[in-house]
Nucleic acid binder design. Structure first.
Lengths: 143, 143
DNA sequence: ATCATATTTCAACTCAGTTGCAAGATTAGA
DNA sequence: TCTAATCTTGCAACTGAGTTGAAATATGAT
């Protein structure tokens, strides 16, 4: 992802200054192969620089409101975040009930999903979050 | 639901005593037409009797672990709970982004959903939570 | 009735996030 | 350049939701 998105430009398009913390948040999420918790992002940031958690929470909220990030709610108490650029469309998440690890699954078009669900006539679906809870192949082997 | 489930029997099947708090939790959820937050359940309980929140959290955790209840995570921070008896199978939830109201949608079989998603080979899906965010017909009319 | 176990309570705590306001950085205008 | 307005970050203190450990109470079995 990070190799495909121009983060300074992305920020400029949103009228935001390319500050070190903002860029670092995007880079960390760009390099991750899974959705990260705010705490994980904060930890990564602190390896490089001194950052306050409030700053990170505010950046994450702001980015989510602008559609730069997607916030996903898994079973854990903490929300997870991932990039929401065109190279990374919405997709289901798989969470293993043994090791708690999160995997991103292939995207399913919203229209097909909405047809499958047969949502109430007149309602409009803007987003469909799908969370699969189960057991990953690694944990299943160990049983 | 409540007219179809025998709560004392349900508890007995799970080796649990039919205590007033446990029964009241089930009755409250049985009468609700939507998933409730722990706080809402606690509030309802306190109309009838003096109950400690820890008791309620422990009962909700225990019931969820035993499969008597389902815990669902919507966009709000607090988890929501609903009865998980055979008369009330898992189903997608629709949450309106304008009025925040939650609607229960018709159930979709797990196997069909898992096939649709094409989850990774070797992984086993135990549960699929689907949350649709959008705009309900009532709010769309007002636009 | 006595004892073991199950259930509920209490106080204190954690974790994830939020608030208000101060301090520092950046940009635009005089 | 200096200054003011604005944007961004930091700090301390707080909230809401849930958890912990241990004590108190209730219930069931003998």
């Amino acid at each position: 992802m990070s190799d495909r998105c121009n983060f300074p430009q992305l920020l400029a398009l949103n009228g935001l200054r390319p500050t070190p913390v903002r860029l670092a948040v995007l880079e960390i999420l760009g390099l991750a192969d899974r959705a990260l918790r705010a705490g994980e992002i904060l930890e990564s940031l602190r390896i490089r620089r001194r950052v306050n958690k409030v700053t990170v929470y505010r950046i994450l909220d702001d980015f989510t409101a602008r559609g730069i990030l997607r916030r996903i709610n898994l079973d854990d108490r903490a929300a997870h975040y991932e990039l929401a650029c065109e190279h990374h469309p919405p997709h289901p998440h798989f969470q293993c009930l043994s090791c708690r690890e999160v995997q991103c699954l292939d995207p399913v078009p919203l229209s097909r999903m909405w047809a499958e669900i047969q949502g109430p006539l007149g309602n409009r679906a803007d987003r469909i979050d799908i969370r699969v809870a189960g057991h990953c192949h690694k944990c299943r082997e160990q049983e």
